[in-house]
Amino acid sequence: MAKTKWAIDTAHSSVEFSVKHMMIARVKGSFDNFSAAIEADPTDLTTANIEFNVDAASINTRNNDRDAHLRSADFFDAEKYPSLSFKSTKIVKTDDDEYEVTGDLTIRGVTRQETFTVTFEGQGKDPWGNEKAGFSAEGKINRSDYGLTWNAALETGGVLVGDQIKISLSIEAIKEA
């Protein structure tokens, strides 16, 4: 199959993350607004071009005060850096439907190379004749690498917010006409 253009069906996709809180539990959140420009043969991602953008202000942890703090200069500084972006630079097939996708991740004006495990979940037509493809992606980054260093020490030792962020994407893409 040839490379074709795909867009994200945001109604059937999600961008989620989790981080350790108080060194004992995980707090989960998501971003509500995101988009992508994808040129790919879904059955062979090794030649794909993937550009992904996330609206930093769309962060949602189900707590308004925490979300406001995460949008502030202490964390994402969403007013100054309105988007988080990823652009693929290298894709290696590691199993039948699995890939290591490496690219440039930019958060808060800092760009670093990161690798995510991407799984091709399948492809088919919806009831209206639209060609769809499903993907999932998992990865981990260190928030301090991107200048997200705010924290508070705990009386019992350790810190309030962990450094490692687990990222999880579930993507349903729609073939562009």
Rank of each mutant, 00 (worst) to 15 (best):
T106P: 02
A25M: 11
K140F: 01
R66V: 03
K132H: 12
F31S: 06
W128C: 09
A25V: 09
E131F: 12
K132P: 13
E138Q: 15
S30T: 13
S136C: 12
D44N: 04
W128S: 06
F75W: 06
L148M: 09
E138A: 15
S72K: 00
F31K: 08
K125C: 08
E155K: 12
T117K: 14
K93H: 07
I107M: 01
A73T: 04
E79K: 14
Y146P: 06
D65E: 14
D65N: 13
S88T: 11
E100H: 06
F120H: 04
F75Q: 02
A133S: 07
T149F: 13
G109N: 03
I59V: 06
S35D: 07
A68K: 11
R62K: 15
R26Q: 14
F116L: 04
L148W: 04
F76Q: 03
R62H: 15
Y81T: 04
L45I: 07
F76W: 01
R66E: 05
T102Q: 01
F120Q: 04
N64F: 14
R62D: 15
V92H: 00
V161Q: 11
P127W: 08
R143K: 05
E121W: 15
L45A: 00
T61D: 07
K28T: 13
K93R: 09
T111Y: 02
F52T: 11
E98K: 13
S83Q: 11
A40C: 01
F120M: 04
D74S: 01
S83W: 10
N60H: 07
T102A: 02
R66Y: 02
E121L: 15
A152P: 11
F135E: 00
L70F: 00
V161K: 08
G147I: 03
N60D: 11
V110W: 01
K93M: 10
N64S: 15
R26S: 14
G158S: 05
R71H: 01
K80H: 11
Y81V: 02
D145R: 01
G129V: 02
V92C: 03
G157M: 03
P82M: 12
A78R: 12
I38W: 00
R143G: 09
G124A: 00
F86G: 05
I59M: 07
I107D: 00
A78K: 08
T94P: 07
P82G: 08
R108P: 10
